[in-house]
Amino acid sequence: MITIKNLSHDFVIGKKGRQTIIPVLRDISFTVEKGEIVTIVGRSGSGKSTLLNLVSGFIHPKEGEIWIGGEKVSELNEAKFADFRIKNLGFIFQSFQLIPSMTAFQNVELPLILKGVNENVRKQQTEEMLKKVGLLDYQDHYPGELSGGQQQRVSIARALIVNPPLILADEPTGSLDSETEEELLQFIKELNRDLGITFLIITHDDQVADIGNRKIELLDGRIVEGVLV
């Protein structure tokens, strides 16, 4: 599903003439098979978020290749990556990233609007998805009117609405209490088992890391040897 080959990335900080290059990822290579749940763990500053942002296409790698579903996404431009993203990727963010001026229904419907889906089909699919995450009764609520767990479920519903084969999750339980965290992890497992959705999850939480088929640990921008399960 995902193949990373010799991926390296660094950030340039400081003003022109006094710039400092900070290496973040160094020669990373690994694969994620279809239907797997792979978790990436590591301390703060280990480069795990950068790795996810590179796979998501939010930043461009300096070196190396990223392949998703047979497509070399590391070479796609912004517009082409946007089209690829809407068809193939779902995102779950730590801080949910819901649009506050839109209701739960509108937030879940948004990817379908961007995809150009017919209004009637959209309505039906969005309602089904909200029902699936148990929020049909809250469809007209704005994010500010929902609890953290409910917001994350809206965020998951938004990620699932386009039936993506791969979901990228960045600290999905970071803003949730332990009970809601447990529920969410259970839901991720169900989605993986029932729908065969592949998950690449970034976390520093051991409980989250343990739900994966494999765990990759990053340390100072490198994969720590011997931790691949």
């Binding site: 939010f58 946007a82 068809k87 963010f93 819901l98 948004l110 961007l114």
Partner: peptide, 15 residues
């Protein structure tokens, strides 16, 4: 921020 979210979930810059 809304534009960022839209771009993140797949909105084309042209759109």
């Amino acid at each position: 921020p809304d534009i960022g979210i839209m771009k993140a979930i797949g909105a084309n810059p042209k759109t």
